[in-house]
Nucleic acid binder design. Structure first.
Length: 441
RNA sequence: UCCUCGGUAGCUCAAUGGCAGAGCGGGUGGCUGUUAACCACUAGGUUCGAGGUUCGAAUCCUCGCCGAGGAGCCA
């Protein structure tokens, strides 16, 4: 079982996804054995290579006795190179099977694979995330994640947006000191970014239409199905866009992402048993509710959240069940929102902002606002919130040198993935979830 | 930080004061079309830890540890 000797890496091999087009041909595939059944004189090798799965049928009288016996001794997740002939078979899910002529063992595990064929508890699966990724469900979810990110970037790039990365280490507190991860930075303190927004605003003054995409960090001890301590956020920021244009961009972006997933991830969505009709309903225009209308509506639906409070998770769930597509909640009271949001021109107690809530109880996937562009009002807000003024000197500069109407928003990647894939918990929507009690693997 | 629930074989769970069990996985044997294959046999335990109540504790009590679900906060 010498790897280099028996398996020249320059040799061509075939990916399982391409087998249907190689019917009748002799091929070699490389991958892993994810299950095996045997009837004594015939082995059924369930093989996967990351592009698909195929059943290798190994008949005793058609292969060497040694090779047949060696195959029988394989453990689950053995890595193998399998040679055989592609054969059409109506019993196979992909329409083809592989009639095996020989199996070369790359490595046969010396102990049993921890993840079995029956159900496991979430604690065990998260402890084995590095192996759990191999399961079909996790692969389907992560393919949808990739599609969400890819389609969002494609949409923005085609619409003239430029990716301008923002720093992960920052000396400024961002949205307020609570929930920040603090780290030793040589002789002083620094923080992990909670948002790239302030940097995106600076970049918008340079490039006009920009976005950031990267990990963000919240040190809050949240223990819910909607929270991670490390999550990815897409944050467009647009010069000369007002609140209305901002929401229009959000609506177009979400529609594009959903349409892309429906077109390119149909198999994954079906595997996850997602109700596809719910996604097909996601079309513009999305309904809009003013904050006070939302509070009124919630009262009729049995919530006792008073005017002036932020909506709770239960409120979001109740509210979104009233609609078949995402719903905007606009113009929250100033005192429950961030300092950088622009005051409502007709009501100084409100700010020009929006949350976009996904249907079916998934809740907030986007938070956005028009930014305060007045130097004086922004400075006043920083003082009102008792934020460290000196940390925001550069941010205030943006209002000092050619200030401009601008707006932007943050879209939580994992929440969008959880919604589109129909997940119960956000932690499956990221390859390596970080939660309050879990940083390994 | 608060509330709720849980921790028993490698895994998923049962046993609720009276002999520690099943399914899956592992081992051995059988089976030429299996689809979480099946059949037979078999090995496998510090019941999370410490202390307590009791003739007797996986089970009841106290403390601790480790998780999960939810609240708050947020994307």
């Amino acid at each position: 079982m010498t790897y280099g000797g028996r398996l020249p890496m320059t040799a061509p091999w075939t990916y399982i996804k391409d087998l249907p087009s190689r019917e009748g041909k002799e091929v070699v595939i490389r991958g892993w054995l994810y299950n095996m059944r045997s009837s004594g004189k015939i082995h059924f090798l369930q093989l996967r290579d990351g592009t698909g799965t195929v059943q290798g049928v190994m008949v005793k009288k058609e292969v060497s006795e040694e090779n047949f016996a060696e195959a029988k001794g394989l453990w689950l997740e053995a890595s193998v190179e399998v040679a055989g002939t592609v054969r059409k078979d109506d019993r196979a899910p992909s329409g083809v099977e592989l009639t095996v002529s020989s199996v070369s063992v790359i490595q046969n595990p010396s102990e049993e694979y921890p993840i079995g064929k029956k159900d496991h508890g979430i604690d065990f699966l998260l402890d084995h995330r590095h192996l759990w990724l191999r399961s079909p469900r996790q692969q389907a979810i992560l393919k949808i994640r990739e599609a969400v990110i890819w389609s969002a970037r494609e949409f923005l790039r085609n619409d003239g947006y430029m990716l301008v990365d923002s720093p992960i280490i920052s000396g400024a507190a961002g949205e307020g000191a609570s929930g920040l991860f603090e780290l030793d930075y040589f002789d002083s303190k620094a923080y992990l970014a909670q948002t790239g927004q302030l940097y995106a605003e600076a970049a918008a003054a340079a490039f006009g239409k920009v976005y950031t995409l990267g990990p963000t960090f919240r040190a809050e001890k949240s223990k819910t199905r909607r929270h991670l301590t490390e999550f990815w956020m897409l944050e467009p920021e647009v010069a000369f866009f007002d609140h209305e244009a901002n929401m229009d961009l959000q609506e177009r972006l979400i529609c594009h992402i959903v349409a892309y997933a429906l077109e390119h991830c149909r198999r994954e969505l079906e595997f996850l048993e997602r109700d596809i009709s719910k996604l097909e309903a996601v079309k513009a225009p999305f309904p809009h509710l003013q904050y006070d209308e939302a509070i009124e509506m919630l009262k009729k639906l049995g919530s006792d959240t008073p005017y002036g409070s932020d909506l709770g998770n239960d409120d979001e769930t109740i509210l979104t069940k009233e609609f078949d597509r995402p719903v905007f909640i606009e113009n929250y009271p100033k005192k429950i929102k961030a300092f950088y949001m622009k005051e409502h021109p007709e009501n100084p107690d409100l700010v020009l902002c929006d949350d976009l809530l996904a249907p079916e109880g998934y809740g907030e996937i986007i938070g956005g606002s028009q930014r305060e562009d007045s130097y004086d009002r922004l400075l006043a807000r920083i003082r009102e919130e008792k934020l460290p003024e000196e940390a925001y000197d550069w941010y205030l500069d943006l209002r000092k040198y050619g200030t401009f109407v601008h707006s932007g928003f943050g879209m939580g990647i994992e929440r969008v993935v959880a919604w589109i894939a129909g997940l119960q918990h956000i932690r499956e929507a990221i390859p390596w979830p970080r939660t309050i009690y879990r940083v390994k693997p």
